[in-house]
Nucleic acid binder design. Structure first.
Lengths: 194, 194
DNA sequence: TTCCGTTGTAAGCGTCTGCTTACATACGGT
DNA sequence: ACCGTATGTAAGCAGACGCTTACAACGGAA
């Protein structure tokens, strides 16, 4: 229906996609280090040698995964809705197809060069959008603190799996977190300077 | 001065301590997966086989590291000061001897069984102490959100190294974060229920 | 001095890792 | 039908990993 081409038993495009999908799932589940190229290929249903033909290296594949998630969320969402959308994406149950950018982001801890660069760029994107919501002169720091909060919540719920955050109702978390964030962005605490 | 015993060229206690110190430093710097037993032994100045004689396994050593940091901070600090103390510990420059509990905590991401159990227990300790600061009926969730924020800030500053948090003045971060936390703990947003 | 348990090291085992090579099979154009 | 290329696999390499084993040297007690 959605594809008019005849089904091919060998299809480079489909294989590439399958590998990226498998890699995305595993990287978000286990993080970069604990995911092996053999795991990825096995989940995609192919030989791991293909992974190197298509992507060259494990690191390059990781970059493709991050790039493919592709800043879509941060670019397609109006700034004033971004925080809630990102938070709800992070809290949603893990099965459906959804934006996993922040999960990949927080799973990609490590000191790898290319990886940390990608991470920094993506974070900058979120921070600068959130910064438009306040006119404080330390707007960037404030919005960075909020991004950090998002990461911390995701870390606690998804990676560590610690209660009560892990099993809390997304609505409750949203209500509390968004409320506190709004006070941070809108109402300026006394900053002790002129 | 502080040790009246004669200096011994062979001292099991001192060796143990050296190994734990080296392990603490490396685990907090690189995380669990990226730290090898050979790295640890080399930094301590010993053969890696000793590590297994004293601790049995890499995982057991990690548990000793966490245990030795030892919940001291969370138990020795009065609840109303805990948040600031923990945050400042997380933000302080990396050289001096200081409490690294939260750093180890956030570095120990992964799915290892013993590790994740230790992590959960430590987190519970922090959460329940912070929960005494509010009388909301979802006190635990609120304080867990604050612990998550601590982790997120530490992650951004220490692990990811992303500006502006990475290079911000600790005082500024403290002022903003503590202010927002107080509103979360003290002033209850409308929770839409009876 | 002899002796033996403690404290240390060198070497290596088995396994897993990212990655490569050599080869098989399917496909599309002629 | 034929053939060259695109797509796929099986096997294996070199190195790193956690961990073990066999053995050397120290140091206190006899």
């Amino acid at each position: 229906m959605t594809d008019d081409r005849p089904e091919r038993r060998r299809d480079a495009e489909a294989t590439r996609r399958a590998l990226i999908d498998a890699a995305t799932a595993l990287f978000t589940e286990r993080g970069y280090e604990r995911t092996t190229v053999r795991d990825i290929a096995a989940r995609a249903g192919f030989n791991q040698a293909l992974l190197f033909r298509y992507f060259g290296s494990k690191k390059a594949l990781f970059s493709e995964v991050v790039a493919r998630q592709g800043w879509q969320q941060v670019r397609d969402t109006p700034p004033e809705r971004l925080l809630e959308v990102a938070l709800r994406g992070l809290l949603a149950p893990g099965d459906g197809p959804r934006d996993r950018t922040l999960e990949v982001y927080l799973r990609s801890t490590g000191t790898g060069e290319a990886r940390s660069e990608t991470r920094r760029l993506l974070g900058r994107e979120y921070t600068s959008v959130l910064a438009t919501l306040t006119d404080a002169d330390d707007a960037e720091l404030r919005s960075d603190l909020i991004l950090a909060w998002l990461l911390g919540i995701g870390l606690t719920r998804t990676v560590i799996g610690k209660d009560p955050i892990a099993s809390a109702d997304p609505d409750d978390i949203c209500r509390l977190m968004l409320h506190a964030s709004r006070t941070l962005l809108e109402k300026l605490p006394d900053d002790g300077s002129a």
